[in-house]
Simulated assay, not measured.
Amino acid sequence: MARATNVASRRDSGVRGGSNSVASSVLGIIGEILLTLAAVLALYIAWQLWWTGVEAEQAQADQRQDVSWVNPKQGGSGYSIAKAQSGEPPVEPKSANTGDLVAQLYVPRFGSAWHRNVVEGTDAYQLSRHGLGHYPETQMPGELGNVAIAGHRSGYGEPLAHVDTLQKGDKIIIRTKNYWYVYTYTDYKIVTPEHTEVIAAVPNEPGKTPTDRYVTLTTCEPRYTTATHRWISYGKFDYWAKVSDGVPKELSTGDASGAVEFSQGESSPLAKLSASMTQLIIGLAIAYIVVYLAALIAWRYPALKALRTGHRRAPGASIYGWMYRHQPGPLAIRWVLMIIVFLTVVACLFEWGFPWAASNIPYLQVTSNFVAVE
């Protein structure tokens, strides 16, 4: 009788143990799924706030290479300082089509190497891919009136992220094919989107005939949440100069020898990588196949063999554990293969997954302002 009771007790314990084991496995898998979703969300934020800027940087560099603009004059001691010209400034360009490179904007307050392209048009595609956009209904550089320029404040290179750091007297400099136009920052205001008078020929005085030249920068406010307002920064024309004479003194820096330096903003290695992301994915896939096959031929699946022969305790249910055990080769090789898989998945998300999500999921469409490259 006692023996029968012990057997029944062990059976009950086995049943309870089996139930607990199944529950633990299910909870473990749910935990892995949740952690994976959290990682994907973190990667999406990195893509939105950082990688879109890397891609925009490369797009701007490519666009600059496609135009023939005058190079600033250089002498024996670096770049020359361009002399401020008197008289009416030339208007350049006279006109432009949507997407054309109109100018480049330099703001020393944002950093000595900071500059962004300014293209014609302010639609989502131009602002997401090409830096800054010139409002077509406003004046061109050098023309009497207001050169109004729009840009993102977060993501896509966040060209106007730091407009709140501008101080009265700071310089805002527009460079076109042949000329520099130097403006002095005056003040700012925050308005709701319907206040279009901020980009009038005379800012905030629609219909008034301009007798001076202005620059207006518009961007979103607040920076990281739904943009309910617009941050408007104003500048007033100071002087113009010829690019063929050199660079404005406000953009020049000196080295130890006293030579005048000027950063023209070469694209970073990461920006160049963004242009060849598809090739990177193909390279990672080929690397995985080569290493996988070589390890399979040389060692087969030691982790699975250890389980079959009883030399290793059976592990709990795990998505990543299953993937890891099904990689061939010793420990180091399996880790290399897992890392290649991880990098390939991340690259695919950045290249195709996140752009698709930002273009097709309603909430992400609203928050990202993303426009797929055609």
Rank of each mutant, 00 (worst) to 15 (best):
A161W: 01
Y185G: 04
W180E: 11
V163L: 14
T196W: 02
K177D: 12
V198M: 03
Y181I: 03
K189R: 12
V191W: 09
I174Y: 05
L166H: 05
K171F: 14
D164M: 05
T186W: 04
T176Y: 06
Q167R: 15
G157P: 02
K177C: 15
A201I: 03
K189H: 07
N178Y: 03
T196P: 01
A201E: 08
T192D: 04
K168S: 10
D187M: 08
A201V: 04
Y188G: 08
K177R: 15
G157E: 00
D170T: 10
T184C: 08
V198N: 04
T176D: 03
G155N: 06
N178M: 03
I174T: 01
V163R: 00
P159A: 02
R175T: 11
Y156K: 03
P193F: 11
T186H: 04
H195E: 13
Y181W: 14
E158I: 04
I174N: 01
E158F: 10
N178R: 11
I173Q: 08
Y179N: 15
V198H: 03
L160D: 05
V191D: 12
P193R: 10
T186G: 06
A161C: 03
A161I: 04
L160S: 05
Y183M: 05
G157N: 00
W180P: 13
K168R: 11
T196C: 01
H162P: 02
K189V: 07
I199K: 04
V191Y: 11
I172L: 15
K168Q: 11
I173D: 09
A161M: 05
T176P: 05
Y156C: 02
E158V: 07
P159K: 00
G157Q: 00
T186C: 05
E197Y: 08
I190D: 09
D187W: 08
L160F: 15
V182R: 07
T192R: 15
G157L: 00
Y188S: 15
I190E: 08
I199W: 03
I190S: 10
